[in-house]
Structure formats: structure tokens, C-alpha cells
Amino acid sequence: MSKNILLATWNEADTAYRVFSELTHAGIRGVNQVAIIAKTENGKIKLKDADSNSIGKSALKGGLIGMVVGVLGGPVGVLLGYSMGSLMGSLADLEHQEHDEVVLTAISKSIPRSATALLVEADESDTAELDAFFAAQHAKLQRWDYEEVESEVESAVAAYENAASEVKKTIQAEKKHERQAARKQKWDEFKAKFLMQRSD
């Protein structure tokens, strides 16, 4: 049995809401979490609705799906280029690059602007059941190993934290330089004033 993250996308904006309802009532074994995510017109990724068959809606935010959306839609995604306008490449580009591309980028690129999609966490001994379900819903379906996605999220957060730390160091260094420059200016002014008084 493998644990996977699936992304189902449609060009129609509201399709995900209908399929979300049907999937959560379909009784497909192994489906742990289902979430509707949306991409706004300006490219921001948002969590729209969520359901969990076993652990409750509130747990989604602490689960991998919630973390994926948090990375894509938050400051981590903006900094690393996973969200907003920088990732609005075509699906044709994605198909040429998907084997080398990181999962977070693929997820963001795959969702059309002003459209919704489904993110699904599932334990699958056989992918046929969910493949058949989404094929009947005319979805474009992509699937990744859970641990691969988890590793990418961890790496993205670590990269963001490192970048934020470097920014902080730079700001602190600039402030230190400014303070040193201000002290030097005051000292130069004092010396000039002192020497002027002595010359008098």
C-alpha cells in the first residue's frame, strides 16, 4: 500500500465543489483527506473547503494538505516562486518539465487562474479506484508519493527560514553600518569643533 497526494484539476471554476461532495460520499477506501483549493485571478492559492473521513476538519491545517496550501499561498510560496504571478506557466510547459520539476511548482502551475481543484490524501493499495472515479469526472489527475511531498514542504520551509535569517542579518549589518557612520560623523564634528576652539 502506498500513501499518495493527488491533485485533480478542471478548467471550469465550480466543478471541484460538486466532485468534492461526490467523493466525500463515495465511500472510497483509503481516502483520508480531501480539500478544495482555488487559484485567484492574481495567482494566489487558497484553501476553500475541507473534509476528513477520520480526523476531522480542524486537523487539516496541521496535516500535509494544509501545509502544502500554506506553503503555496503564503510568504514561503511568494519568496520561492511557488505562488502569485511568477508561476503562471502553461500546462504545455508543465508536461515537458514535470519529471524534473518540484511537486509544489507542479501543483501551482496545474491549477488554472480563477479555478478550483481537489487535493486528496489517500492510502492506495491499488490506484484503479480513484483513477476511475476522477476519469468519470473528466479530471486531469496527478499523483505523488506522500513522503516526496512532505520532504519538499520541509525543504521549502527550511529555505524560507534560511532566507529570512539572511535578510535579518543584512538589515542588522546595514543598521550597524549606519550607526557606525553616524558615530563617525559625530566624532568628526566634535573634533572639528574642538580644534576650532583651540585655535581661538
Rank of each mutant, 00 (worst) to 15 (best):
K3A: 11
K3V: 11
L6F: 03
L7Y: 00
T9Q: 00
W10D: 04
E12K: 13
T15H: 08
R18G: 13
E22V: 14
H25E: 12
R29T: 15
G30S: 01
A35K: 04
I36S: 01
I37Q: 01
K39N: 02
T40Y: 00
N42C: 05
N42Y: 09
K44V: 13
K44M: 14
K44D: 11
K46L: 12
K46I: 15
L47H: 05
K48M: 14
K48Y: 12
A50D: 08
S54C: 07
L60C: 10
L60D: 07
K61N: 09
K61T: 11
L64S: 01
L64E: 01
I65F: 05
I65T: 02
G66T: 07
V69A: 05
V71M: 03
V71L: 03
L72S: 03
P75Y: 10
V76E: 05
G77Y: 01
L79V: 11
G81M: 00
Y82V: 03
Y82C: 00
G85S: 14
S86Q: 14
G89S: 11
E95H: 08
E101H: 07
T105Q: 07
T105D: 07
I107C: 05
K109F: 06
P112D: 06
P112C: 07
A117G: 06
L118A: 04
V120D: 06
A122C: 08
E124H: 05
E129M: 06
E129N: 10
A132K: 09
A135V: 11
L141K: 03
R143H: 00
Y146N: 06
E148M: 09
E148I: 15
V153A: 01
A156D: 05
A156P: 00
V157G: 02
V157W: 04
A158S: 14
N162I: 13
A163G: 05
A164G: 06
E166C: 06
K169P: 01
Q172P: 02
Q172W: 08
A173N: 14
E174G: 07
K176Q: 10
E178M: 12
Q180K: 07
R183L: 14
E189K: 06
F190Q: 13
K191V: 09
L195R: 05
R198Y: 08
S199Q: 13
D200H: 15
